[in-house]
Each structure stands twice: as C-alpha cells, then as structure tokens.
C-alpha cells in the first residue's frame, strides 16, 4: 500500500485566525475519511464566509482542538516561522509481529500537510506588509488592509478546501476497506504538530520507507 501525500497550499494567517483555519481544514479532511455512519454537522466559520462540515465525533473534536492549542502555543514560542501540521491516516497491523519491534505497527496510507505562515499580527501592516508605504494613518489603512488580507485568506482557504475535495476525489484506491468496527472516524489517525515533531517526523520517514516494502493489504 502506498502512502499518498497531499501538500496543501500555504496559507498566510494571523495569530488569531490559526484556530479557525486549522479546525476548518482538519475537520474537512477527516470528514472525507470518516467512512462510518456520519451525521454531518455544518459549521460556519466566524471569520470567513465559509461553511465546513464536521462528522460529529466528539473525540475527534476534542483531539483537534487540543492539537490546535498545542500548535498555537508552539507558534507563540517560534514567531515568524512557517509551520506544518500533518494529519496522517494509518492502519494498525499487529497480526504479524516484525523482527525489529513488538509494538503495534502503523501503516500510513495517507498524509495531509497543512502549511501555515503565521504573520505577527502586531507588525502585520508595517514590517510584514508587501508594499513599503508608511503607516501614516494606522486606523484606517490598517482596517482596510486587514479586510483586503482577510478576503484574500478567505479565497485561499476556499481554494484549500477544494484542493482537499479534489484530492479525496482523485485518490480513492489507496483508502483501505472500511473496517467493520463501529465508530464515525473509521481509520486511526494522527495529528502531528511541529512541537512534538522533530523526532516524530523523522520516525515517520523511517516508517514510511519501511512500509513501502510491505505488500499491499488485502482483506
């Protein structure tokens, strides 16, 4: 089984937008992969005129919120940095114990990389601004710039949503068969954020390399 990777378009967000943007993206991805019985929940973003869909899994919601919180605190410690959040889906293989580990083996079959560029909101319209005009009237121009920027982000976020839809549409073969277990989110997943990442990402790579050699799972 191959692991499909989707790199989502980078979004330039301000600090206060991180939560909502990430929630929207993560839930949209998971909704596409929640093949259990789903009662869709429409959620309207507060900052943008976008409605996304949650699959109504309380655990998932909790986990996503938790990860977002962690990510935000990481961003606060590492300002002005491009960052990546990874949502991976895997299958658990514990039937055949491998020689090198007796732990449960994770077979990643899909990874979504969400790319964020967090702008510093305080400097957003002076130093970070593309045009080098002086901020003479911070009140008005800031508001104007902010709304322009917001509109641009909304368009980009919409684009990312369509990117997710297209990817989920085009790549269906690698999705494992629907497990016969109860639950809304049918496949185990994992959300990786930079803070916990450095080693984890490395491990991912090793695992992925190992996994590529494995025979395709048949059910």
């Amino acid at each position: 089984m191959n692991c499909e990777v989707c790199q989502l378009k980078e979004l330039e967000v301000e600090h206060f937008e991180i939560g909502e943007v990430l929630r929207c993206i993560l839930h949209t991805i998971v909704f596409h992969r929640a093949l259990g019985l789903v009662r869709p929940k429409d959620i309207d973003l507060e900052l943008f005129e976008i409605t996304y869909v949650q699959c109504g899994d309380v655990e998932l919601e909790k986990k996503i919120d938790e990860k977002i919180e962690q990510f935000i605190s990481w961003v606060e410690k590492h300002p002005n940095k491009k960052s990546q959040i990874c949502l991976s889906f895997y299958e658990v293989k514990n039937k055949q114990p491998s020689w090198w580990t007796n732990k449960i083996e994770r077979l990643y079959w899909e990874q979504w990389y969400i790319n964020l560029n967090v702008a510093q909101h305080t400097k957003a319209h002076s130093s970070k601004s593309h045009h080098s005009k002086l901020v003479v009237d911070p009140g008005e121009s800031a508001v104007e710039e902010r709304s322009v920027r917001r509109a641009a982000l909304e368009a980009s976020l919409r684009e990312v949503m369509f990117q997710i839809i297209k990817f989920a549409n085009e790549k269906k073969d690698h999705v494992p068969p629907i497990p016969n277990r109860e639950g809304i989110v049918s496949f185990p997943y994992e959300i990786t954020i930079p803070s916990s990442s450095d080693s984890a990402f490395g491990m991912d790579m090793i695992k992925k390399m190992l996994q590529t050699g494995h025979p395709t799972m048949l059910s």
Binding site: F31, L35, V38
Partner: peptide
Amino acid sequence: RRSSNSTLHTLYKKSILLLRSLYVTVRL
C-alpha cells in the same frame, strides 16, 4: 485485483467517498 465481492465493496466505499466530497462541495 479483487474478488467480485470486494469489487462491490470498493464501489460502495468509493461512492461513500464521493458523497462525502459532494456534501462538502455543496456547501462551498
């Protein structure tokens, strides 16, 4: 590569996926 039964399953799975996409798209 699959048996006829799994073909059905695949079809069903893919239609689920397509409908998920449709559900999100309709709102976008």
